[in-house]
Design a protein around this nucleic acid. Structure first.
Length: 605
RNA sequence: GGGGUGGUAGUUAAGUCGGUUAUAACGCCGGCCUGUCACGCCGGAGGCCGCGGGUUCGAGUCCCGUCCACCCCGCCA
């Protein structure tokens, strides 16, 4: 009986992982442990593929090799966990063929002993890379999903990413420091998860959205260079690339300006790409202002792997008095923006009438009222378009054609109205076409620093909110506008963008109390309010705060890009669903009345 | 808060105009097989058609509601 072989694990240790053996190991006595990938039973000859996180090795059983093991091998089923001891032999010399698709395909193990550690029920889905299973099921049986080689590769890469990060920062004299997860609740920004305090009835901790203030206090404390790989929590709606708890590489440095931060982070990226993918990422990365990014690409995180830039034609149209084109004149009257996206003829010709019509629905999904377009005719006239009145104003048409750089056969898409909506729609449309026309080089790594962000954004209530966060330093030359003309103030903030994804964001912080005070005031925060919320920070800044700045990377997104994964859930071991539930543990749950009572919490539902 | 897609055997899917016993593939179970590697051959089992109502002689199919998962908008300082 198999259970009567306790020698395994005690005096028979695993000698190799399952991807290690080659013809150079022929004749060696080895012990492998792992899971059954597959069994091919020919009666007098039984083959199994034994799998561990490294790979596969074929094991062969035969009555003349070991009768007991051969008999037991008949019982084996996928995902049984077992140990095999035997000799490495050549498949060809043993009368078979090599399998060129396996790293270990020239050899096999002749099983002299077999020990079944545990049997397995039939798994709900096969443990292999190419599975076509609803994610619901994968999440319920996450421990089986995680057995799949592709996910194991992802997590081994993520582990390397962590190692590269720690190695790099320690080499640059950063100190790894921890900050609390249970912190003071501050309204504004992302919603917080709350933790009731049993010892302080009626009071709550918040789970930290980020270690922002604490890392600044590390700078006040003189740690100079800090980093941390840290979990953060935000109670916002979820997406493909957003989880309620996520991980950041959090960084803060004293005595730096923007260029110092860029240089250190470019070094980090180069190190990570070298160590994880063995790819060289030369710096420095290109820079682009927020205005240019939004102007040319419609978004503050442009994907530079392909072109298709947007063109703002508002001024040109205005210069021609709207050219008697209804959409143009009404937009000008409303002080709106007019932008265009040109699709060159070579791509435009692929678009059927039906597809063009469907694009309008696509645009509406991003807030468009419609999607005006025109086709450039042989004589450069605007055809098939609600803007056909332009053809009655040849000078205006010529000027626009020139600005757009169009040629016959091109199709141009237009948006009119508030700049924010115009950019959102055309930016999304541009990305759509990038994919649709396969313009995106999948192997490219296009890094970009986006700089010169606005300091504030208008809120729906007509007030101002911090675009980054309220500790971001305004540009010194803009401090005079604080509270006077907030829209003019630019921040010393920056984002690192990779292939159209924001992978990091940060800023040079305010270290002068008076400037901090002015920013708070510009945001409309009351003084007492301020003292209550951020008094400790203002107090800290009384005691010689150094100039400082930092950045935080979204590690999950970074891992996703490094792994080429389609979803954040493929690089987070135990992710939540879009409703924030865990299908494996069935969480969150209700709690019993006694527990609630102890916490002085009453539940309304 | 809003829009979209999906839920039928263990899994992935098909299921026409509402009509007989709900199909297929893979998987699973039993048997045979000494060179397979998507092994092969023979045989077999397996269904709350997400859930709850309704219409109908009759519902997987039509209607209403609801739950779950996924994608997107809003949201994410």
């Amino acid at each position: 009986m198999s259970t009567a072989q306790p020698a395994f694990l005690v005096d028979l240790k695993r000698t190799h992982p399952c991807n290690a053996l080659r013809t150079s190991d022929l004749g060696r006595e080895v012990v492998l442990m792992g899971w059954v990938q597959n069994r091919r039973d020919h009666g007098g000859r039984v083959f199994i593929d034994l799998r561990d996180r490294e790979g596969l090795t074929q094991v062969v059983f035969g009555p003349e090799l070991n009768a007991e093991a051969h008999a037991l091998a008949g019982d084996l089923r996928p995902e049984f966990c077992l140990a095999v001891a035997g000799k490495v032999v050549s498949r060809v010399s043993s009368g078979g063929q090599a399998n060129p698709r396996l790293a270990t395909g020239e050899v096999e193990i002749e099983a002299a002993r077999l020990h079944i550690f545990s049997r397995a029920e039939t798994p709900p889905f096969p443990i292999e890379d190419e599975i076509d299973t609803h994610e619901q099921l994968r999440l319920k049986y996450r421990y089986l999903d995680l057995r799949r080689p592709s996910l194991q590769r992802n997590f081994m890469k993520r582990s390397q990413l962590y190692r590269a990060t720690r190695d790099y920062f320690h080499g640059e004299r950063f100190v790894e420091l921890e900050t609390p997860f249970m912190v003071k609740y501050t309204p504004g920004g992302a919603r917080n998860f709350l933790v009731p305090s049993r010892l302080n009835p009626g009071r709550f901790y918040a789970l930290a959205e980020s270690p922002q203030i604490f890392k600044q206090l590390f700078m006040v404390a003189g740690f100079d260079r800090y980093f941390q790989i840290v979990r953060c929590f935000r109670d916002e709606d979820l997406r493909l690339d957003r989880q309620p708890e996520f991980t950041q590489i959090d960084v803060e440095m004293s005595f730096v300006v923007e260029e110092d931060v860029y240089a250190i982070m470019e070094g980090l990226i180069a190190r990570i790409w070298k160590d994880v993918l063995d790819v060289a990422i030369p710096g420095p990365f290109p820079r682009m202002s927020y205005d240019e990014a939004v102007g040319r690409y419609g978004v503050d995180k442009p994907d530079l792997r392909f072109g298709l830039p947007l063109t703002d034609i508002t001024a040109l149209v205005a210069a021609h008095g709207g050219a008697n084109v209804p959409f143009f004149t009404s937009t000008l009257e409303a002080n709106g923006t007019i932008k265009a996206l040109r699709i060159p003829a070579e791509h435009a010709s692929q678009l059927s009438r039906a597809e063009l019509d469907k694009l309008e629905e696509f645009a509406k999904g991003f807030g468009a009222k419609g999607l005006a377009r025109c086709k450039i005719g042989p004589a450069m006239e605007w055809a098939q378009t609600p803007l056909k009145a332009i053809n009655d104003s040849p000078p205006a048409r010529t000027a626009l054609n020139e600005a757009l750089g169009v040629a016959p056969g091109d199709i141009v898409f237009f948006q009119f109205g508030a700049a924010k909506n115009v950019n959102a729609v055309l930016g999304a449309l541009r990305m759509h076409f990038g994919t649709r026309f396969q313009l995106i080089d999948k192997a490219a790594w296009k890094f970009l620093w986006v700089t010169d962000f606005p300091m504030f954004e208008k809120t729906d209530q007509g007030g101002w909110a911090a675009a980054h966060h309220p500790f971001t330093s305004p540009k010194p030359e803009h401090v005079q506008h604080l509270g006077v003309d907030n829209g003019k103030v630019q921040a010393r903030a920056y984002d690192l963008v990779l292939n159209g994804n924001e992978i990091a964001g940060g800023s040079i912080r305010i270290h002068q109390r008076d400037v901090q005070q002015k920013v708070f005031e510009a945001l409309g925060l009351e003084i007492e309010d301020l003292r209550a919320k951020f008094g400790f920070l203002l107090d800290a800044f009384k005691y010689g705060p150094p100039p400082h700045g930092g950045i935080a990377f979204g590690v999950d997104r970074l891992s996703m890009l490094l792994c080429g994964a389609d979803s954040l859930r493929d690089v987070i071991a135990f992710p939540k669903t879009q409703k924030g539930t865990d299908l494996m543990t069935d969480c969150p749950t209700e709690v019993d009345a006694k527990q609630l009572d102890e916490l002085s919490v009453r539940v309304k539902v």
